[in-house]
Every structure is written in structure tokens, then in C-alpha cells.
Simulated assay, not measured.
Amino acid sequence: MKLIEMTNGEATIHVEPGSKGHEKAIGNGFEAKSPKAKPAAEPKTGEPKAFAEMSVAELKAVAAEFNVDLGEATKKADIVAVLEAKADEALGKTA
């Protein structure tokens, strides 16, 4: 049995690819750690990081910081959509 390492930015777990535990981990914001992945470059001071560039864990942290209810959103694209809609609402933008 081969295990992969997954993290959500706060915790690290090991799961079997394709298992129910793997699917549950993804649903809870865990992403596979790549041993060859380079650390993401930190944005320059004053340059906010775009939602699309953030990990699921970072997106959830932003939502928590600004008290944004993500509802049923668990996938990155869905979380980004909720946060972008809330940002537009806060800035008075309409679709």
C-alpha cells in the first residue's frame, strides 16, 4: 500500500491515494504535498495575493478572518467564487 502525504497548512496526514480517506481529506481542504515543489514566492509588500493563487487552506483562512460563510463550498473553485462575490459586494460591484 502506497501512502501520500497531504497537508492543509496546519496539519499533515498520510493516506492511500483513491481511498475514502483521501477523498475526505480533499473535502476538508488537504492537498498533496509534492516533494519537488518549490515554496511559493511571497508576494511583494503591498501586493495582495489573488484568490486563484491561494491554497484551499489559505482561502479558508481568509474566509474565517472576514467571517465569510462558505456554505457548501469545499472545492477551491467554489471557495474562490464565494470570496470573489463577497469582495465585489463589499466594494459595491454588481454583476
Rank of each mutant, 00 (worst) to 15 (best):
A87S: 10
V15N: 01
L91K: 14
P39Y: 10
A73M: 07
E58D: 04
E10N: 08
I79Y: 05
K60R: 15
D78T: 06
A32N: 10
V68R: 02
G71A: 04
L70K: 04
D69A: 04
A52K: 14
T7V: 04
A50V: 06
L59T: 05
A85H: 03
V68A: 03
L83F: 06
G18H: 12
N8F: 08
M6K: 05
E84Q: 14
E10V: 03
A25Y: 11
A41T: 14
V68T: 09
E16L: 07
I26K: 10
A57W: 04
L59G: 03
G92Y: 08
V62W: 05
P43T: 10
D78Y: 05
A81L: 12
E42D: 09
E84C: 01
K38E: 13
E47P: 01
A41V: 15
I4M: 05
M6Y: 10
A87E: 12
E72C: 02
E16F: 04
H14S: 11
A52S: 14
K24I: 14
T12N: 02
E72A: 15
E84N: 12
N67V: 09
K93Q: 07
S19D: 05
K86W: 07
K20G: 14
K60H: 07
M54C: 13
K2G: 01
V80H: 00
H14A: 11
D88Q: 09
L3Q: 13
A40R: 15
E10M: 08
H22C: 12
A87N: 09
A41C: 02
E16V: 14
G9Q: 08
A64H: 02
G18R: 10
N28V: 03
V80L: 02
K93C: 00
K49I: 10
P43D: 08
N28H: 15
A61K: 11
A90F: 13
E23W: 04
F66C: 03
G71M: 02
L83C: 00
G29K: 05
P35K: 13
V62R: 02
K38G: 07
G29S: 07
K38T: 13
P39V: 12
K38M: 13
V62P: 02
K86E: 15
E47L: 10
S55P: 01
S34A: 09
V68E: 00
A90R: 11
E89A: 15
E72I: 11
P17F: 13
K75H: 12
V15Y: 04
N28Y: 11
G27C: 01
A25E: 08
K44G: 06
E42F: 08
